[in-house]
């Protein structure tokens, strides 16, 4: 039972990070292979504030998100502002992920280099994670339904037209990056306080691939799809050891296959009906809700309004 709980906790943490990345990659159409960097920033921020400064856990979690956002803006703004291609951004993010890992691995004071930091309690429980997943999903659904989220879609669909219709492209992209950085940062913090130990090696570059896999398989332009995929992909390696070894190979092959045959992913541009997600949240991992997926009802603007 305890094993089951721990698997679910990891799944929940992964869900939070994957829906964060989904806003950037799926909704806004920007590519990132560097989000492990935000996970690292989140993890170390929370641990350092908790361990060295005695800040309460809940505040640490929040701070980890905020710090990720700040650093995300430092790296993201110049690439967005230049208004050139998504390629520059993708390359900058690759560099960013590497740079963060390098800085953390080689800084002895505070970060303790490659050895990492330990000696803090396990504060991430299944309940904390469940609560944050629920909160994270609700807030994210609100965001994508808002004008800000719609601007993201416009940028993804047709950047030039969006801009000529008056959408502020730079601001939209920066917001998308900030939101994704926040979620992934919080995920990193939860991860650290689940493991009770954090080192650069625990957040390898392959973590970025894992997160991306959640978005690609769950569906570009969906939040619920990536949430489910993110949970499932965290559980699979736990129950199938062989899968754990070969998962990146399988993801890689599936990336190509999905892009060739069903680029919109599992759910495509749809969302699972919102209410069952909350109501049956505990059963979400069972994926049964996927069958109930409904088309977004444009006329009513979704059902969270009531």
């Amino acid at each position: 039972m305890q094993y089951f709980g721990s698997v679910l906790t990891l799944a929940g943490i992964n869900m939070i990070m994957v829906i964060g990345l989904a806003v950037l990659v799926g909704y806004t159409g920007l590519f990132s292979m560097g989000h492990a960097g935000f996970m690292m920033i989140g993890a170390y921020t929370a641990v350092i504030f908790y361990k060295y400064l005695g800040v309460p856990f809940a505040v640490c979690i929040l701070l980890s998100g905020v710090f990720s956002v700040i650093i995300g803006l430092v790296i993201g703004y110049p690439t967005m502002r230049s208004r050139l291609t998504g390629d520059q951004f993708a390359i900058a993010m690759m560099g960013f992920g590497e740079a963060i890992r390098m800085i953390v691995s080689n800084t002895e004071p505070v970060f303790n280099g490659a050895l990492g930091i330990s000696g803090f309690p396990k504060l991430t429980s299944l309940w904390v994670v469940t609560l944050l997943v629920a909160l994270g999903l609700i807030l994210m659904f609100n965001f994508i339904k808002s004008a800000y989220g719609k601007n993201c879609i416009a940028v993804r669909e047709q950047e030039i037209a969006a801009e000529i219709m008056g959408v502020d492209i730079v601001k939209t992209k920066v917001i998308a990056l900030a939101v994704s950085a926040f979620y992934v940062g919080v995920g990193g913090a939860l991860f650290a306080f689940y493991m009770t130990f954090i080192s650069p090696a625990m957040i390898a570059a392959s973590k970025s691939s894992d997160l991306l896999a959640g978005v690609v398989f769950g569906g570009m332009g969906s939040i619920s799809g990536p949430a489910i995929a993110g949970g499932a992909l965290a559980i699979l390696p736990e129950i199938l050891r062989a899968f754990s070894t070969w998962r990146l190979v399988i993801y890689g092959v599936l990336f190509v296959v999905v892009m060739l045959f069903k680029p919109e992913g599992l759910l495509g541009y749809r969302e699972i009906s919102f209410k069952p997600v909350i109501r049956f949240f505990g059963r979400l991992f069972g994926k049964k809700t996927a069958a109930e997926s409904v088309k977004t009802d444009n006329r009513n603007g979704g059902d969270a309004d009531e």
């Binding site: 808002s146 416009a154 969006a162 502020d168």
Partner: peptide
């Protein structure tokens, strides 16, 4: 809708 909401 997107166009109407370009400024949130």
């Amino acid at each position: 809708v997107i166009t109407l909401q370009r400024e949130p």
